[in-house]
Design a protein around this nucleic acid. Structure first.
Length: 486
DNA sequence: CTAGGGTTAG
């Protein structure tokens, strides 16, 4: 592991002895003013991130040049700023450069890096960092382990992991550690396990706070377990844990999902009565609720309400409205709304383009969709798995399987690996176009670990069984038949 | 002074 990291380091960082003194020969000192300035930037950025990535990298170079004048804390602040911007791999890379330059690090720095590795789904690297820090005499603490636990591929195992850590007297678990695990479990819809961890937490004498309750409420909402939601909300009251704006957004979302927009409106009313301010997320969620029911007028009214409450609509607001327009008023009206938004200063992201591309594909305007898609790189946007998948679906619907397969190749070339939705859509496209052998090939590929280890969803399975039932005598179904009926 | 948990759109 250490070797592979070393290999990926820039040459300059791998050979620190080339420059043992500050690099710039012309400037012989860093002014006190500049140093203070940098420290001010770092303090701010460690809390809310840098303006942009380039700023952070320039600052890092400058600090490297005058590295004896900056402390561990300063460098850690810089990494923290990168984490706030979700540039985890950059943070990891800078950390290794720091090590190569013999810049001191501490438990805070290392915990940050472990957290980054886990966010990048590189838990093995996280564990080897853990070993590395222990070898160098740093003691991991509850924060370090929280980062690691979030990276465990099986959140169910996390429960046992925590119990072991407690038994070994390695940590005193706290509310953040437990909440992190509860979050992982709820995201996988393992709400009962999350509730088990919740009770573990109480047995250890750790009090739940509003974040913990929000996570559980959210998990229960996804499964429509309303009685338990009610029970938890009452419990919060008894325990003197005040619901916050996250609680409101979660409940608004839950009601909207099942079509109860009026109840969602009531949640917002009650939030305001608690003299808590709904934020842009709360209002966006409510808007989405109206759009889901095809009530564009209601959604537009929410935009006015939020403005009057001093909440500024954001790019998500635009996205929800555009999608609502696509589905209710047609993609052409959505496109003109989009252009109007652009004139008003909207800088679209990949999500916005995804909405439009999807709208165009669903309307059969495939060539327009392809033009938007192909234009992405010129505006420095990278299509993600979903964008690719929508285009692939568009091609499949028109029977253009060669084009769909070409996109599959393209996404693999761009290291944007297909997920199970991509495969299922492509396989369904093959079946509908009677390319049964091709479908079998894709099925083989997707189920291997190298293909992602995916499986067919129920829709694809039904389609295949249907074909096997109705086209009994078609010899081209032989491979399919072998796969499914033997 | 620096590290860990939560809400919305395709």
């Amino acid at each position: 592991m250490a070797f592979s990291l070393r290999r990926s380091m820039p040459l300059r960082a791998a050979f620190p002895f080339i420059h043992n003194t500050p690099l710039s020969p012309s400037t012989s000192s860093l002014s006190t003013t500049r140093r203070r300035e940098v420290q001010t930037i770092l303090l701010k950025s460690s809390k809310s991130g840098f303006e942009n990535l380039g700023d952070a990298l320039h600052l890092f170079d400058e600090m490297l040049q005058w590295r004896t004048l900056f402390s561990v804390v300063n460098f850690t602040q810089l990494l923290s700023g990168l984490v706030k911007m979700r540039h985890y791999s950059v943070a990891v890379s800078l950390f290794h450069q720091m090590c190569a330059w013999n810049i001191p690090v501490n438990t805070y720095t290392i915990s940050t890096v472990i957290n980054c590795y886990c966010r990048l789904n590189m838990i093995q690297c996280g564990f080897s960092m853990l070993g590395w820090m222990i070898k160098r005499g740093f003691r991991p603490n509850v924060v370090t382990y929280t980062g690691l636990i979030k990276g465990l591929s099986s959140p169910v195992e996390a429960r046992g992991f925590i119990k072991r850590l407690i038994r070994l007297n390695e940590i005193e678990p706290d509310v953040v550690l437990y909440s992190a695990v509860i979050d992982r479990l709820c995201r996988k819809n393992f709400v009962d396990q999350a509730l088990d961890v919740f009770s573990d937490m109480r047995q250890e004498g750790v009090d739940a706070n509003v974040v913990t309750y929000n996570l559980l409420v959210q998990g229960l909402c996804k499964l429509n377990r309303w009685e338990e939601i009610d029970r938890l909300l009452r419990e919060m009251d008894v325990m003197n844990v005040c619901p916050d704006v996250y609680t409101s957004s979660i409940l608004v979302n839950a009601y909207c999902r099942v079509g109860r927009v009026e109840d969602a409106e009531n949640v917002i009313k009650m939030t305001i009565e608690r003299s808590e301010c709904p934020n842009v997320v709360t209002y966006n969620t409510l808007m989405h609720g109206y759009c889901l029911r095809g009530k564009i007028d209601g959604a537009v009214a929410v935009v006015s309400t939020m403005k009057s409450m001093g909440v500024v609509p954001d790019i998500v607001t635009c996205g929800i409205l555009l999608d609502g327009f696509c589905k209710k008023n047609g993609v052409d009206e959505a496109m003109s709304l989009f252009h109007e938004m652009e004139r008003n200063g909207l800088i679209p992201n990949i999500y916005i383009y995804g909405i439009l591309i999807n709208g165009l594909c669903n309307d059969g305007q495939l060539s327009k969709a392809k033009i938007l898609f192909d234009n992405l790189s010129s505006i420095r946007l990278e299509p993600d798995v979903k964008t690719y998948t929508m285009m692939i679906q568009g091609f499949c619907q028109k029977g253009l399987l060669d084009e769909a397969n070409e996109l599959l190749r393209q996404m693999e070339a761009e290291n944007c690996l297909p997920d199970n939705v991509t495969y299922n859509i492509l396989i369904r496209g093959c079946i509908q176009n009677k390319k049964y052998n091709e479908a079998c090939g894709l099925m083989d590929r997707m189920c291997w670990p190298s293909g992602g280890g995916f499986s067919l969803d129920s829709c694809t399975t039904c389609m295949i069984l249907d074909v096997l039932g109705t086209e009994k005598d078609d010899p081209s179904t032989l491979a399919l038949r072998k796969k499914f009926l033997t």
